[in-house]
Computed example of a mutant assay.
Amino acid sequence: MGWKTDWRSFYYAGAEEPEDIAIDAAKTALLVIDIQNTYLEPPEDPEEAARWAPFLERMNQTVIPNTRALQDWARGEGIEVMHARIACLREDGRDRSLSQKKPGFNYLLLPKDREDSQIVEQVGPQGDEIVVTKTTDSALTGTNLRMILHNMGIERVICAGIFTDQCVSSTVRSLADESFEVLVIEDCCAAATMELHEHELRVINMIYCHVMSSAELRGLPIGAAVS
């Protein structure tokens, strides 16, 4: 068992194991997506608070500490640490994509300077680390991140953050479509429920990315990519 065989969907049940991965630090970035204050605020309604309690527990006990540890590891290895957050540039949110204006959970009015739109402090940027602000799900579609990655010579992007089945998945698919190699770190991500989280990891694994744990990632050799 391990990342080469775990998280397989129906499509890849019988596929050959992928090749070994070596991390070329100079060509790799760690992108943390949408771990923002608003998502750690318990709902005021008691029933909604109960529904979201498992998500908040996973965020506070697993995703945030694991992500911070991953960031520290990446910084120590010379891997670029980057950040994406979802927010609107106008106070009225007119600049948001249609998906962010529809009623329901995905409706977001997060002006960029408001406290609830800021990145959670524990996993926030250090020094001059790049932060992109997006107005749609994909961090690539909604920003100039594509150009930034190309300008910096990045070929592989390690993804962490929330929500696995929404902004993480959209970003991963966009990166894959642009021919970036993508790794998704399963214990640094969360969806509203574990069922949604695990289902989406199986959907995107092997075709758009490789899914692995943070321990498996740190166990990969640092050096030139395996040809």
Rank of each mutant, 00 (worst) to 15 (best):
F55W: 07
G78D: 13
R114H: 10
E16I: 02
D45G: 10
E198V: 05
S9Q: 08
A13V: 09
G14A: 15
M59T: 09
I130E: 15
A215H: 10
K112S: 12
E216H: 05
A53D: 14
E181Y: 05
R114E: 14
V226A: 12
I185H: 02
G76V: 08
D95K: 01
Q36F: 04
I23G: 03
R58W: 14
L89Q: 10
W3D: 12
H199G: 04
L175W: 00
I35S: 02
V172W: 01
D6F: 02
I35C: 04
I119Y: 00
G76P: 04
Q36C: 07
L40W: 04
N151C: 09
M82W: 00
K27L: 06
Q71I: 14
E155G: 11
E47I: 03
F10C: 12
G78E: 13
C159H: 01
D45R: 02
Q166V: 15
Q122T: 14
M194A: 15
Y107W: 10
E47L: 05
C188E: 08
T143Y: 02
E178D: 15
G124C: 10
L40Y: 04
I222C: 08
S97T: 08
V123N: 03
N205M: 09
D24L: 06
D113C: 02
P43H: 13
P42F: 08
A139M: 08
D6H: 09
A176E: 08
A84V: 07
G2V: 04
R8F: 03
R51T: 10
A176I: 03
A74L: 06
G76S: 14
E47R: 01
R94S: 10
D45F: 04
